[in-house]
Amino acid sequence: MAKKLPQPEQEMSFLDHLEELRWHLIRSTLAVVILGTLAFIFKEFIFDVLILGPKNKAEFPTYQMLCKGARLLGFEGSFCEAEFPFRIQSRTMAGQFSAHIWTSITAGFILAFPYVIYEFWKFVSPGLHSNERKSARGFIVVASLLFFMGVLFGYYVVTPLSINFLGNYQVSEQVFNDFDLSSYISLVRASVLASGIIFELPIIIYFLTKIGLVTPEFLRKYRKFALVIVLIVSAVITPPDIASQVIVAVPVIVLYEISIFISRAVIRNQNKKRRKSHGEPHR
């Protein structure tokens, strides 16, 4: 009996790709909704511990560390004050419920990020060669790790610096700070998500190098321009004081230098494969 030869995989049409993308998006959305529902249930922990945690100067670790640092330098900074001179209020009927919903969705996205990346990888990987898929097996782990590192950096560094500056800032002693709940949550959300995305820079550079849009020489040549962009981004996601901007800019600059190293490694591997395919001797 004759053996059947394996049939070559047929190329998917444009509509098939759209259908495949639709199901990846549906599964990713379901993961966000499920974990967002879980966050919705644990309302007290999400709000009292996480969201409102950076408002509590007496217990939040960032303020304690900065206060100790200020005292070692011989002065009492605003980080050592007992509490912030402002209140958080909700001035609309549906304000607290809307904040609960959108905060739960944000928490669901953060928690589901590894699965979202996994679905993205499943959609992209069929278009890669087998050796490329093997070399990028750690993509999900590395991308998730960088994202969570960025989220923690945004929560423990960017958020308290922003709250401390803006919460203590007054144009006049006759004007009191009473912040709306949605404004406070949007600051926390923007700080956390922006930092998480910024920390994905090495992954972005990796793929840009793979498709030939970026080279190590290009990154080194425009390092000065990148530094200016980093400072601009730092100014956008932090309060307008130099110390906060420098604190945020330092890890981003480190990530940029790591991205140059990653880009150089990608180019080196591509050159090795090219020489090997042409039978050239290894240098």
Rank of each mutant, 00 (worst) to 15 (best):
23 W>K: 10
76 E>N: 10
80 C>S: 07
39 A>Q: 02
74 G>R: 07
40 F>I: 06
74 G>Y: 13
99 A>P: 05
52 L>W: 02
50 L>C: 09
47 F>E: 01
85 P>H: 00
97 F>I: 14
105 I>S: 03
97 F>E: 11
34 I>S: 13
69 G>I: 02
104 S>L: 07
67 C>E: 05
42 F>W: 11
59 E>P: 01
50 L>Y: 07
59 E>G: 08
83 E>M: 10
63 Y>P: 00
55 K>V: 10
63 Y>V: 03
22 R>V: 03
111 L>F: 06
38 L>S: 09
25 L>H: 01
21 L>N: 07
46 I>M: 08
83 E>T: 11
88 I>V: 11
24 H>Y: 08
54 P>M: 01
57 K>G: 00
65 M>R: 12
48 D>R: 06
64 Q>H: 06
57 K>F: 02
91 R>F: 15
38 L>T: 14
75 F>A: 07
99 A>G: 06
95 G>Q: 05
81 E>K: 08
50 L>M: 12
38 L>G: 07
38 L>F: 15
54 P>N: 03
101 I>M: 09
48 D>V: 11
100 H>M: 03
32 V>G: 04
73 L>T: 14
107 A>M: 03
29 T>P: 00
107 A>Q: 03
58 A>T: 07
84 F>T: 00
53 G>M: 03
69 G>Y: 05
36 G>F: 01
40 F>V: 05
39 A>P: 02
33 V>P: 03
86 F>I: 01
60 F>T: 01
75 F>Y: 15
82 A>C: 09
107 A>P: 05
72 L>Q: 13
42 F>E: 11
88 I>Q: 04
45 F>Q: 12
40 F>C: 00
74 G>K: 04
47 F>A: 00
76 E>S: 12
102 W>L: 05
41 I>G: 11
69 G>Q: 10
95 G>S: 12
79 F>K: 00
100 H>E: 09
78 S>L: 09
48 D>S: 12
44 E>M: 11
23 W>S: 10
27 R>F: 15
63 Y>A: 00
35 L>R: 01
76 E>D: 13
36 G>M: 00
64 Q>T: 02
93 M>H: 14
71 R>K: 14
82 A>R: 07
57 K>P: 01
42 F>Y: 13
38 L>K: 12
84 F>G: 01
95 G>L: 04
73 L>I: 14
87 R>K: 15
67 C>L: 09
49 V>K: 12
114 P>K: 07
93 M>V: 15
95 G>A: 13
35 L>Y: 06
33 V>A: 10
66 L>H: 04
76 E>Y: 14
77 G>C: 02
